[in-house]
Design a protein around this nucleic acid. Structure first.
Length: 570
DNA sequence: GCCGTTTTCGGCCCGACTGTTTTCAGTCG
């Protein structure tokens, strides 16, 4: 049983208990489900190695839920879940994905109309059966149909890189509206998460309702789900939803904290306020009716005894404790990068020439790039063999003489073969300035084989960097099975750098692994993996990823000037 | 059912909007 399957059962359990109006347990199951989802290993492997106590170390999992997970792993049994599921045998995950449909509604729909899945729901709504139920009307029915339609079209979360440009355009438009005194992203967009479910905007104005009215008429808005004096929820032309909340400028700090989240961070920080006998809501930090702080985030955090916490790390994984102790790291900043160590050109599968890429990189504010075209075993890209690489080294020397303000390094993205050997001879690799190695095939090897394979490659003294270690493509291809802890140990021993590939679909390695590298003292680089002159903008996504992994400037070697950077290579 | 600077029992974040109602439950973030 995979983590996803276990998490799904825990989520469903939360909803089933919600239907039964059981108090507090739903949230406990919800938290446990999140804990399982967030794990960087398979629960079954944790159980195999560490047994029951390993399960109990999963965040949000205590004795009770650990026992249920154990049952699921041992024989697929979870008696209470099955019993509840028998009472209300419906596809909860599917139904609750419909906007506006929650556990209570699912229960009523099943009891009265025997609705079990999306198909049943759509049929019943179209036949006008739902509006006949007590406490349901025509509008509820329409809303359900709209929700189903949206679900069919949108297909879930979008990757950050895809949606960020759209969101920035809307934010700009919002900021320039008359009467608006500032606007920011909220939610997962402000936290720069890998994928975005919907867009959140927070705006500040003395006349909130006027701003809401203008917002819902933006050209990007396709339809309006709901609209009040301070809030609106709309659907955009690109089939994503966007929320806006407009509040008075004096509440800015508290409002941004409330709307940035994430949920667990908010719960933790509000609980912290409560423990001091205060109350934190969307408008401020209060002692009874007395306002203690609200204007800026810094002010609110400070009053609570916390340093300001960067949005990217607001997810209740230790940031509050660190902020309390003044031990938050100073994260690498947007704009800190001086180089890019993975750039493809038209020598293989890139779209532009070496010179064009160099100019584009310079324009993007970089001081050096490494040309890292694919190597020969990646035939589909026209990968370079030894002769072609040597020719490219000479070509780069020539171009370097012609240009100024940027230095081009010669490199390669060497293919790691199934057994961990490399497809380019050492004597040629040793002539390159920067050598990255990457897995591009045999994604399905066992964890042991895959780990051994990559470690073999790392043992080659010419390999400076491992590119996109886990090979995942968000939404399309799973990460390879690999023991990241072992890789990090080896990287530490060998002085190998691990890459944070900023290409929007990759974002590889992910934030938890970055955090492990930071803790282990393993250095990283942030690369665009550019295949065109337009791709250097992706570096921003990589920086966001690094920040979510608590990386400091000193953890990222391509924040260094060229000479210093070169010293950190083998 | 989880969890702990109020620590092994007694708490569990907070508010806006909607729909179908006459005061609020359900949903969402």
């Amino acid at each position: 049983m995979t983590n996803q399957e276990i998490a799904k059962i825990l989520h469903e359990m939360a909803e089933l208990l919600e239907m039964k109006e059981v108090e507090f347990k739903p949230r406990a199951y919800e938290k446990a489900a999140l804990g399982v989802e967030g794990l960087d290993r398979e629960v079954r492997d944790v159980y195999k190695e560490r047994g029951f106590s390993g399960l109990m170390e999963i965040p949000g999992v205590g004795r009770g839920i650990a026992e249920h997970i154990e049952g699921l792993l041992k024989n697929g049994k979870f008696a209470e879940y099955e019993k509840l599921k028998k009472e209300i045998p419906v596809n909860i995950t599917e139904l609750s994905a419909v906007e506006g449909v929650g556990p209570k509604m699912i229960k009523i729909l099943y009891k009265n109309l025997k609705i079990k899945n999306l198909n049943d729901l759509e049929k019943a709504a179209k036949a006008g059966k739902i509006s006949g139920l007590a406490r349901f009307g025509k509008k509820s029915e329409e809303k359900i149909l709209k929700g189903i339609e949206f679900l069919k079209k949108s297909g879930g979360r979008r990757i950050l890189g895809e949606i960020l440009p759209v969101a920035e355009k809307i934010l700009e438009r919002l900021r320039t509206l008359p009467g608006v005194e500032g606007a920011e992203f909220g939610g997962s967009m402000r936290r720069m998460k890998e994928t975005i479910g919907d867009l959140d905007f927070v705006a500040f104005s003395a006349k909130p309702s006027a701003v809401v009215e203008r917002f819902v008429k933006f050209p990007e808005v396709q339809s309006v789900h709901e609209k009040g004096g301070h809030k609106a929820l709309v659907r955009l032309n690109n089939n994503t939803d966007a929320d806006i909340w407009v509040t008075l400028p004096r509440s800015k700090g508290a409002a941004l904290i409330a709307w940035t989240g994430d949920k667990q961070h908010n719960i933790a920080i509000r609980t912290l306020a409560e423990k001091k006998g205060w109350m934190l809501n969307d408008y401020g930090l209060w002692k009874g009716k007395k306002l203690l702080a609200s204007k800026t985030e810094e002010e609110v955090y400070k009053k609570l005894g916390l340093a300001w916490i960067p949005p990217e790390i607001r997810n209740n994984t230790g940031e509050l404790e660190a902020a309390q102790k003044g031990k938050l790291p100073k994260l690498v900043e947007y704009g800190d990068l001086r180089g890019d160590l993975q750039v493809q050109t038209d020598w293989t599968d890139g779209e532009n020439s070496i010179l064009e890429m160099a100019h584009a990189a310079k324009k993007a504010g970089l001081e050096y790039i490494a040309i890292t075209d694919h190597t020969k075993s990646l035939a589909m890209t026209g990968g370079a063999d030894e002769k072609k690489l040597l020719r490219q080294i000479e070509e780069i020397k020539k171009i370097n003489k012609k240009i100024s303000g940027i230095k081009i390094l010669s490199g390669a993205e060497v293919n790691i073969m199934k057994d961990g050997s490399l497809d380019i001879k050492d004597e040629v690799l040793s002539k390159l300035d920067v050598v990255g190695a990457a897995v591009h095939s045999h994604f399905n090897l066992s964890r042991e084989e895959q780990t051994k394979r990559v470690i073999n490659a790392m043992n080659n003294p010419n390999i400076d960097i491992i590119f996109h270690l886990t090979g995942r493509v968000i939404g399309r291809r799973e990460a390879i099975q690999i023991d990241v802890d072992e890789i990090i140990k080896t990287a530490k021993r060998k002085g190998t750098i691990l890459e944070i590939d900023a290409y929007p679909e990759r974002l590889d390695i992910k934030d938890e692994y970055i955090r492990k590298c930071v803790e282990a003292g393993v250095k990283m680089v942030i690369d665009s993996d550019a295949h065109s002159v337009n791709h250097f903008k992706y570096l921003e996504l990589g920086i966001a990823q690094a920040r979510r992994g608590w990386a400091k400037k000193s953890d990222i070697v391509n924040t260094k000037p060229l000479a210093e950077f070169l010293k950190s290579l083998k």
